[in-house]
Design a protein around this nucleic acid. Sequence first.
DNA 1: CCATTTAGTTTATGTCCTGAACTATATGGG
DNA 2: CCCATATAGTTCAGGACATAAACTAAATGG
Lengths: 411, 411
Amino acid sequence: MRKTTAEAQPAPLDAPGNVGDVRKANLARVLAVIAGAHSEHRLSRADIATRSKLTKASVSSLVADLLASGLVIEIGVHRDGERGRPSVGLILNPARCVIGMEINVDYISAGLVDLSGKLLTHQIVPRLNRGVNAEQVIDALSELSSQMQQAAEAQDLKILGGGLAVPGLVDEKSYTVLQAPNLGWETQSLNVRKLLRETKSRFRLFNEANASALAQQQLMGPAERDFLFVSGEVGIGGGLIIDAELFAGPQGHAGELGHVVVQPEGKPCSCGGRGCLETVAGQEAILSAANLGVAARGASRQQRIERLYQALESGQESASIAVADAGKSLGVAVASAMRLFNVSTVVFGGHFAALEQWLLPATTHSLTTHAPSIASQAQLRFSPLGQTGALIGAAHSVVGDLLESPHQLVG
Amino acid sequence: MRKTTAEAQPAPLDAPGNVGDVRKANLARVLAVIAGAHSEHRLSRADIATRSKLTKASVSSLVADLLASGLVIEIGVHRDGERGRPSVGLILNPARCVIGMEINVDYISAGLVDLSGKLLTHQIVPRLNRGVNAEQVIDALSELSSQMQQAAEAQDLKILGGGLAVPGLVDEKSYTVLQAPNLGWETQSLNVRKLLRETKSRFRLFNEANASALAQQQLMGPAERDFLFVSGEVGIGGGLIIDAELFAGPQGHAGELGHVVVQPEGKPCSCGGRGCLETVAGQEAILSAANLGVAARGASRQQRIERLYQALESGQESASIAVADAGKSLGVAVASAMRLFNVSTVVFGGHFAALEQWLLPATTHSLTTHAPSIASQAQLRFSPLGQTGALIGAAHSVVGDLLESPHQLVG
DNA sequence: CCATTTAGTTTATGTCCTGAACTATATGGG
DNA sequence: CCCATATAGTTCAGGACATAAACTAAATGG
């Protein structure tokens, strides 16, 4: 009866479908094609038409809008030796970026990420935020953010949005940190307006593990559509990517591995429960179990971590046993998580990545013991993301939002 | 620049957006409004226009297509005493239905579910399917299905599709049961063509727990958007509803609670691991731990279950301890699952529902011990769904598919 | 210099939603 | 009995959009 080419999508009940929606979808489609091209490969309108399966006419019209939005620019190109009219290259505008930020227990950081996901500049400022009033931390970060914004202006870079990652549970809509035990925060509403001059631009708040998972996704490329990222910071967080999208769960806290029960009769945990993964594999748990000696008492956590590495390198048994115990419990928790989420790839980040060689054998063994059918297909990896992971992920995710709804910048 | 009213959706890369898509989305939208109305409340075109926020003109045109598709029918209505032209009522066609089926360990079943989700007729046939060749079971089910189809024809009911639930992991696309240890099946490709005469109609294969979760969702209504359904059959399965949709995970096996590790040093499990929930709270585990005495040896499982209930009613300690132990481990597993999925409602079905009074105190206590912050907000419920749950869920889900893409029936 | 080739634009056409005008059908008061 | 009023539903002109085909632009190569 009607000629149609694509799948319908049930429109949200508060906004009926409209021919304009098609335009929005196709704008995003064209932009996705441009963004998906290999960075050095400038696409022509004709290329885009082929890849997007839209007609040349439509692509020309859509590209005109994208040029007007400033997300895309033209680069003149003369094809070498080929016949025919030369094509005009189209690329994501390198003069547009998003600011990514992170508040962690012992530092704050900020950086600029361009539309292709590249980290242009960044700065990490050591700062003990534990127990410090949220307002003060935001002020310090605001300072750092201002520096970044000045740096951007100096290079004629326009900032289109921002993302902030914090080590705790967040409510994105209200820009509220619900729980961040490692910062000592509870239900802190963050004044994020201080962080960006352009109040029009979009701003998002992320859990640190989720942001890192997003950065890891970018790192591994689009082929890896499903994995669990386990972030071993002071606490143990988790970020889940399912079908190439962040799966955050009803309140945005899905994937949190730290309080999975690994020893029903185990030690009490800071969460009020007992036998949680964090009581065995959390940074504090490993450090105290490693029995680093009297010299370590009273030292800062950073110093104690250094001691731990030294102890491991020198083969001190109490240290390697502590890490192996952590690895074993990690295997138990990961077995359950892989089962429940039905994922077969797990990426360990944060301090787990640094502990790889001592951790992995125990984790693998434990996983094999508790879930052989999963272990046989499991991919356990360790993330090379350093301290910039969370800010890159937060910024890149905001970039993704922008690229998915370019029509907002067209009007 | 452009006047628009709705959110864009990035079209799948294999099909560009097209004005026709708007129609598809709006057809589904109108249908959703009709389906969402309270069953006795027939909506007029004018009502639909108001609720869908489409214009009267568009609604009239869209409704014409829906009438042509047969999914919707008109019912003349004269409003009592009100002024103005009387409206024409529109309802889902009661003469359209979907056939739902289930293969379980000791029975097969089939039933007809209409577009409003109501079970019209059904039949449950006891049958020991354990260890029986899949082909034979399908033949038996095909027989039952034929009876249903005849019954449908006799009432002028048109069958638009079918859904089949099986107690195991499935691959929907290839109609293959990958693992069904309780049936003794492994990688069985099911010849589902035998089950439906209309080869054009759509057919879907479900895991039993997922199908039951979908039925539970229908039962609880649209307000409950997130919950975990735990199905205590011979094995322990799980179905997860997130944001009012089934979350099946990458391969469709998400939410499977049976092999979550609850005792790292526990008993070996049939899955090859150890300390899985099923080794403590599975039907077999409870029955053998309950120590039902020599009389129970050699009895059928159904008989032994009856004995268990008797023992519990009469206060036999070994039985109540066995169930309490199961409940305790269930609490551990549920604590982890609620944490990982970030859901706060869990519904227990299958034989767990029958054990509610003996199970719940132990489960609640265990949950409180291991995750007090979750326990304080948790909703633990028990499902009233009986043996028809899975078939209703499977059928209803197929109905949902049909209502979401009505354009396929319009042409 | 002109045929060939490829890039991109213009134009006519059909779908679809919208808003406004219009028709259809009821109630109720004079 | 007739007409004002109210509500339901249809018709029609108009604008946004994608499409296909024709057309223009700009290069190469013989």
